[in-house]
């Protein structure tokens, strides 16, 4: 089988239209990886669900992380940059989003209130990813998705 590690980094100004462009870039890479994966499936003769790496939930999680970085981190200041890094292997997808803002206290987030606007993004991220961690300052989020949760 083909083992792969695909790492990429994108740095872009804090403007939302870039998110749409990045989606397409990531989607294209996903198509490439899916080809390798279908070869692996034939070699191994087993069903590997690779779709979860590029499905709806992952897209929403990346979207929300980038949006938070632009809005809450960099306060929509186009001079400040957002960095999106990801590492994709046969079994895991790890995504890091970093902004140039002051960070936030992720241990003391107010509860999400149904009709308030904030906090919903992070709620979605936690729901769709297997692991979510912040750096100490709170301006960098790392999200991990395992291809099959709990399996090596």
């Amino acid at each position: 089988m083909i083992k792969f590690v695909s790492k990429n980094e994108f740095v872009f100004p804090s403007q939302k239209p870039y998110i749409t462009i990045l989606f397409k870039v990531i989607e294209d890479m996903g198509h490439g990886m899916k080809k390798i994966n279908s070869v692996n499936q034939k070699l191994l003769g087993e069903e590997i669900d690779f779709g979860i790496f590029f499905g709806f939930g992952i897209t929403v999680a990346i979207d929300e992380a980038l949006k938070n970085a632009i809005e809450h981190g960099n306060k929509n200041d186009a001079m400040k940059k957002v960095t999106l890094e990801y590492k994709l292997t046969n079994d895991t997808l790890s995504i890091t989003v970093k902004d140039e803002g002051e960070g936030f206290d992720y241990n003391n987030l107010p509860e999400v209130v149904a009709d308030e606007d904030s906090g919903r993004g992070l709620l979605l991220i936690r729901n769709f990813m297997d692991e979510v961690n912040f750096n100490e300052k709170g301006n960098e989020i790392n999200m991990i998705k395992y291809r099959k949760k709990g399996e090596n």
Binding site: D117, R120, L124
Partner: peptide, 16 residues
């Protein structure tokens, strides 16, 4: 076929 938390926010606003 796609919406994020901002989109949900727009619906909440409409409801209000």
């Amino acid at each position: 076929n796609y919406i994020n938390s901002s989109g949900l926010g727009i619906f909440i606003n409409l409801l209000k």
